[in-house]
Every structure is written in structure tokens, then in C-alpha cells.
Design a protein around this nucleic acid. Structure first.
Lengths: 260, 260
DNA sequence: CGTTCCCTTGAACTTTCTCAACCAATGTGG
DNA sequence: CCACATTGGTTGAGAAAGTTCAAGGGAACG
């Protein structure tokens, strides 16, 4: 579950994965970002396969916008990697209040937080047409026992999620609506950039209400703040299309947001 | 790093650890709660030691109130287990705004989130006189390679932290000042209870300002809200001493807070 | 072509924050 | 032991930020 703002870029493993991608001709771009690609049978040609790699069961799954990948409380069987599309993860209070915990895009891995509890702790829904790989956790755990690299990468991934979560606490705890939204947009920008898309201009995949929920704001405040940024000449907003007029100065103006 | 509200109780591993405690006569109570006690040379009598347990290096460290355990950005060498006392973990924005990320008590394990980055992502300070065990991560990682149980327990611990973090996001994102403070007090109550202390009455170890920072509120709001709870006959507050007039009904009144 | 969903904007209202004064407890140095 | 400073906590009043309620517009979809 990606609950928070990303690091500016994810350094080492991406590099490695990209090098690997060139070498091994990964089927799709998302796999180059996926931390689990070494386990993925379709991603690794037979010649290079580890003998036990066979045991890790990957399943492809297609979702339409609005489809649930899994529900809070469902038994945990698999972790997932996003191949294409986008999803949101949500948690719900007893009284029905819902909070978006994060947005997931191609290459993101999710459901790691279920390992402890054997049940999913959030609901994940596709917000556009989406493909995911399901990776059986049982077989993954087995492979991790044998492959140290993999196990380390996995711990690393988990602990990265925690870093993101604690950054998000800062956002929700200390920042104004403008700062929250700026942080959110800069996060999206850097994530799209990492995926080879434009950092300056992109389509939001989610509604104002979902953004608001994620940031602890109402949809009206999100809308007003976007309008404000536009009035100030910082952004061009047209429905879900966002363009930074000057990305560098925007980032600078809100730099308090980007790590200490 | 404990960034969020705890589960009501931590089930399986505690049970196991307590059974172990009885069997092996752990030196202090905190060790019975510590997820790493199996590695702890003083905790495991020579007869029962795994041959590679020797390699995990534990160091005791004493801190006075106000002492730093480590600073944001310090190189990461060890994870820590709290033996006694309390600490707070904080993160800071460039402009100096600070956010308390969590409070740590006896038996808690911290600095797990540094694994990914090789640097500590938060500053941890003792808020009263405190003892910790420092566990060399290098030797811990080695032991985990050999002991599957340990490695699984570690992943479990990491993923528990994530569950807590996402619960905290709910608190900061969706809840009013009263709900936040109620959630905080109930969390403390259950944590003290887990440690064999009273769930109904306890001393806050932290200032109003620290509570406020943790909950995304000002210290004045914390103070006013405590006064309000007292006026409503829910709490008896006297400086840092908190007593629930009726813990069950208090919990019920704010039950929206406690998981779905 | 009408319905639905999403977004925008305005106005009144609520909550929390900010600023400020004050009190109580604790610690310090003469 | 007392005067004084420091730290932590309480309370009030006004200001600010964001929410709620309400109305209306536009794109998308059947």
C-alpha cells in the first residue's frame, strides 16, 4: 500500500531493474519498475531462471474502473504488482467515514501490509482500467527463504513504505491545504516522471473527492485551491489535466515539503 | 518507529514471548514484549542458544530525559528495543516545523524504517530516563538469513508498523480534535495495559505540546479538550495524571476510532 | 436527449489556531 | 530559605482556515 508521498526518485533498484530490462527484454515497461520482476516467470527467460523461481506463482488479472481488487478484511493470499492503470486504497471507520490511503500506478507493489495480519487492511479499487500481477505470498515466502537478495529487497520495500507513511504524517499533521495539494502534485509529477511520462503535464486519474480524502480535505477545498494556483499563474488546470507553468519554481516555492 | 495507534492487543507473538519468558526467566519484563528477545544473549540461557545467536550483538545504552538516541540523517547501524522509560520520535521540515511521529515504551522496537535508506529517517529522544538495547543490524541481517522464523517475525513487525501508520493517517485525516485525543488516550491505555499497568489510570510521559504535535493539534487545543472531557465527567485530569471515570463507556463513545 | 457524475463558486458557519495573559510547580543561586 | 527564572499548563478573545450547505454548469454516457 502506498500511503504517502514518494521519495524524489527510487535510486539503486530501479537502475538495476532497468539494466536488467535492457538485457532481458522485459515484456512491458511497468515490469522494469517492479521490485519483484526477478521472480516473474514471463519476465525472466528460461535460460536465466533460478530453479526455484518456478515456484513463485504469478497470475494476471484485469480490472475495470470501479472493480475491487480486494476488500478490507479479505484473507490475504497474494501481493500485487500493478502492470498498467491506477488504483486507490481506502480504509473505513465504523461510522462509514472513508479515507483514501494512497494511489497506485504501474510498477507499484501493494498489499505488503497484510503480511502481519493475514488479512487485508485496506480496500483496493481500480480507478481506471487496470492490469495487475498477483503473486502468491506462500510461494513468495518460500522463494525468499532461499534467495537472500530477494528477502532483503522485500524488507527494503517494506521499510520504504514506512518512510512514505511517516512523510505523509507530516503532510496531514502540519501542512496547510495549499501545501498539501502542492506536495501531492509534486509527488505525482515525480512518479509520472519515473515512469517515463512528462513531469510537467499529466492527467489526474482521480476525482477531487479522492484527492481530498487522501489529503484530509474536502473536495471543495481541493477545487478552490487548484483554482487559486491557477489564478496565481502557477498551474494550468483543465478538468483533470494539470500543467505546471514552471515546475522548478513551483517545487522551490513549496520546497519545505520535500524532505528535511 | 511507532507512528500510530496500536492494535487493541498484540496477540500471537506476545503469547509466545510470555510463555518463553516463564520458561526461560527473562531478566526484565520488557524483554517479554520484545520481538527480538530470541536473539538476545542475556535473554537466552547458554543451553538453549542457537550456534549463530552468538553473532547478534546487543549493547545496552542509558539515556537521560532529553538525550538523543539518534538524529535524522545519522547513519543506520542498529535497531533498538526499549527496555525501560519512554522516547519520542520526530521528523522535521526544512523550515523547522517539527512533527512527533510516535512515542515508544518498554518492549517497543524502533528504527526499522531505516533499513531501506541506510540512514535514520527520524530523530529519537528520551522523554524520561530510559534504557535501550541496541542490536547491530549487520549481525541481525546475518542471523535472519539463517533463521527463517526470525526473518518472518521481522517482516511481520515491519508490516505491523505499516498497519499502525495507516491507522494514524485516518486519525489525522478524518478526525476532530476530540476524537484524536480520545483515540490517543485509548491507545496509551491499551499499551500500558499490555505492559501490566493499569488501563484506567496512568501518567502521561509527554507534554501537551508533544501530544499536540503527534495529533496535528496545538497544545492549547489539547489542553482545552482535556478540560472538556473533564467537564463532561469522562476523565479526571491532574497535570499528567489521567484517570478514566468509566473506561468502557469512554471507549464506546469513541468506538468509531477503533478499527472498522 | 436527458440523467448522472464531477467540478466550480458563493455565503454562512464551525473549528481550530494565534496571541496573550496568567497560574502552578520546579529548579537555581544568593 | 527565599526571591526569581523557567517550564508546563490553563483559559479567553479575536482571527483564520477550512467545512458545510447550496446552486449551477459542463462533459460523458446510455
Amino acid at each position: 500500500m502506498s500511503i504517502a508521498l514518494r521519495q524524489r526518485a527510487i535510486e539503486v533498484p530501479i537502475q538495476a531493474a532497468r539494466a536488467g530490462a535492457a538485457l532481458l527484454a522485459l515484456p512491458i515497461a511497468a515490469c522494469a519498475r517492479c521490485h519483484l520482476w526477478q521472480l516473474c516467470t514471463p519476465c525472466v527467460p528460461p535460460a536465466e531462471r533460478q530453479p526455484d523461481a518456478e515456484r513463485v506463482v504469478f497470475t494476471r488479472r484485469r480490472l475495470l474502473a470501479g472493480d475491487l481488487l480486494f476488500n478490507e478484511g479479505d484473507t490475504f493470499h497474494s501481493v500485487y504488482a500493478v502492470r498498467s492503470g491506477s488504483l486507490k486504497s481506502t480504509v473505513t471507520l465504523q461510522d462509514g467515514r472513508e479515507q483514501v490511503g494512497g494511489f497506485l500506478f504501474a510498477g507499484d507493489v501493494l498489499a505488503l501490509d497484510a503480511i502481519a495480519s493475514t488479512r487485508h487492511t485496506s480496500t483496493v479499487m481500480a480507478i481506471e482500467d487496470t492490469q495487475v500481477c498477483a503473486i502468491s505470498y506462500q510461494s513468495l515466502a518460500g522463494a525468499m527463504q532461499r534467495q537472500t537478495t530477494l528477502q532483503r529487497g522485500f524488507s527494503r520495500q517494506l521499510s520504504l513504505e514506512m518512510v512514505r507513511a511517516s512523510r505523509m504524517l507530516l503532510v496531514l499533521g502540519r501542512m496547510s491545504a495549499q501545501e498539501r495539494l502542492a506536495a501531492f502534485l509534486l509527488d505525482l509529477s515525480s512518479r509520472f516522471h519515473d515512469r517515463g511520462q512528462s513531469a510537467r503535464e499529466f492527467n489526474l486519474r482521480m476525482t477531487r473527492a479522492e484527492i481530498g480524502s487522501y489529503l484530509g480535505l474536502t473536495l471543495e477545498t481541493v477545487s478552490r485551491t487548484l483554482s487559486l494556483f491557477q489564478q496565481q499563474g502557477l498551474l494550468a488546470v483543465e478538468r483533470r489535466r494539470i500543467r505546471f507553468v514552471d515546475l522548478e519554481s513551483f517545487a522551490q516555492r513549496f520546497e519545505s515539503v520535500l524532505q528535511g
